[in-house]
Structure formats: C-alpha cells, structure tokens
C-alpha cells in the first residue's frame, strides 16, 4: 500500500538554523531516508511535512578533539567506515557500519537516523552504548547533552522533543587497553535486520575484569546496556563458573520477544552464547 504522494511536502534545508526553524513549526527531519522512505513507500509514514537535513554542513562532519570524537548526526555509514581515527579507535562502530544494509544503504543512511529511528534492532546502538556515547541535541532554544544510555525510554520513546534535532554523537577517547568484541546475528550475511547484535568491551587488571561494558540489540524494547550482567563480572577473574553465572545473568536480563524474524528463546540463548564467546576471548 503506497502513500498518496501529493499529500507530502519536502524542503531541503541549507543551514542548521533553517532546519531548526522548520522543526519549531512542526516539520519533521529526514536524513538519508533509508528508514523514512521505506515507511513512506509502505503508506505508513505518520507525518506530512519533511525537511531534509542532508545538506546541513554542521551535521555531516566528523570532528576530533583531545578528549572526544564528535560525529555529526547526518554522517553516513560510508563516511564512518572510511574515517581513519574511527577505524583506529572505534573499530566496533566501523564494523557495525560495515554490516548495516548494503553499500547503497550505507551511502545514504546516517548514524543520527539510526539512533532516532530507535529500532531495538539498530546495529549502531549497542556499540554506542559500550563506547559511552553522549548525544547533543539542538533546537532554537539551545543545546543539551545527554548520555546515550539514558536516551531510550521505551519502545520508540526517546528523550528528544519535537523541535529538537540530534546534532552530534560524542565518543570519549579513552579506549586504549580495552578488549572489544562485536557480533551481529542476522538471517543472512548482508541486508539483514539483526536477530541479536551484541557489543562488549572490557579492561583487565591482571586476570581480573577491571572494567566491562555489555550491550545488545533486538533483545528488549530498547537497545539494552546490560548493567546487571556487568556487575556480576566486575572485579572477578574469568573462570568457567563465572562465565556460566554471567551467561545466566544476561539470559535473565534481556527481555526478547517472538516476532516474524525470530523467537524469544533463540534471541535469549544466542545473547548468552555470545557473551560466553566474548568472555572466553578474555580468558
């Protein structure tokens, strides 16, 4: 079922302020359109007035400072994959970008769109959670920053107001000595919506886990940072028992559902198995 095309409006904003003005008047942003246009083509797009933010310069660059990397919300996956600093310091993000859709989708799709589309299966979300990302939101009223782990409130519910734009995603640069792990489990090797996507980082002191971050997608109404499982692991030394305990903890912490793409049991079992696989790499 298609939308009635003449009912919809679209303008292309050249500058950030133009976009913010329009948002304040009730227009909705469109970036790469790889989520929005699918809804539109299926006749399921709930809004009629769209402002394209693809050409806003402030949103499409990647900036480096001593303490953080800031990725504009409209930066594409292709751009992320090719960026030398991201490849060096945030390889999990580049991996996630590399298996988002296909080349054509990566040329259009943006990190900001992935976050605001707020699919629980979004591939960048677990990565941003384990990298402790912060989001910068902007409106005519000003800007504010919120930790990404507080951003999702419920299924497709977020801490963003209608007049706000996601401006950029900040990643703190303190990633050295961390071991990291990422895996996407989807129905096929490309063009796949994740059944489970899993990311984790850890730092060891001696044989003990000094610092650990675990996140998973497609296993709860929101991208899930697995705090309870992390606390089971923190300060402990890797052992078969610990791995088993942690696997049980994460199986209890996730709340997956059965849908047309996979089953609850499968998602739960795979998340636990991936955690084990990660922990075994630390041993």
């Amino acid at each position: 079922m298609r939308s009635f095309v003449p009912d919809y409006e679209l303008v292309v904003a050249a500058r950030l302020n133009d976009a913010l003005d329009m948002l304040a008047e009730g227009w909705r942003p469109i970036a790469g359109g790889t989520d929005l246009m699918v809804l539109f083509n299926a006749g399921k797009l709930p809004y009629r007035k769209l402002v394209s933010i693809r050409r806003v310069k402030e949103l499409s660059s990647i900036e480096e400072s001593e303490t953080e990397i800031s990725i504009g919300a409209a930066v594409t996956y292709t751009h992320i994959r090719q960026h030398p600093v991201l490849r060096q310091e945030f390889p999990l993000l580049c991996s996630a970008a590399s298996w988002t859709g296909s080349i054509a989708n990566q040329n259009r799709g943006t990190l900001g769109g992935n976050i605001i589309n707020a699919s629980p299966a979004a591939d960048s979300s677990p990565v941003l959670l384990v990298y402790d990302a912060e989001l910068e939101l902007i409106s005519l009223r000003g800007t504010r920053r919120i930790p990404y782990c507080d951003f999702h409130l419920g299924y497709k519910k977020m801490q963003i107001r209608d007049d706000e734009l996601l401006r950029s995603i900040h990643l703190p640069r303190k990633t050295e000595n961390r071991r990291s792990y990422i895996r996407k489990v989807g129905p096929r090797q490309a063009q796949a919506i994740s059944k489970v996507c899993f990311a984790a980082t850890a730092r060891l002191r001696g044989s003990a886990i000094d610092e650990v971050r675990i996140a998973a997608g497609s296993v709860a109404p929101v991208p899930l940072r697995c705090h309870a499982t992390e606390s089971v692991l923190r300060g402990q030394s890797i052992s078969p028992d610990l791995i088993e305990t942690a696997a049980n903890a994460i199986a209890a912490e996730v709340q997956p559902i059965t849908d047309i793409r996979s089953t609850r049991d499968y998602r739960r079992a795979v998340t636990a198995n991936l955690l084990k696989q990660f922990l075994q790499t630390l041993a």
């Binding site: 790469g32 359109g33 246009m37 699918v38 394209s52 693809r54 054509a104 989708n105 259009r108």
Partner: peptide, 19 residues
C-alpha cells in the same frame, strides 16, 4: 533501482526527488 547520485550508489526508490 540503483543509480549513481554524485558518484555514489543509491537506491532511487528511497530518494525523494527534491533531495
């Protein structure tokens, strides 16, 4: 529906013309 848009591969079914 793939075409090259400014030398980049895109799926033209997902591109609003004004964009």
């Amino acid at each position: 529906c793939a075409v090259l848009l400014n030398d980049e591969l895109v799926n033209s079914c997902l591109v609003p013309v004004r964009d």
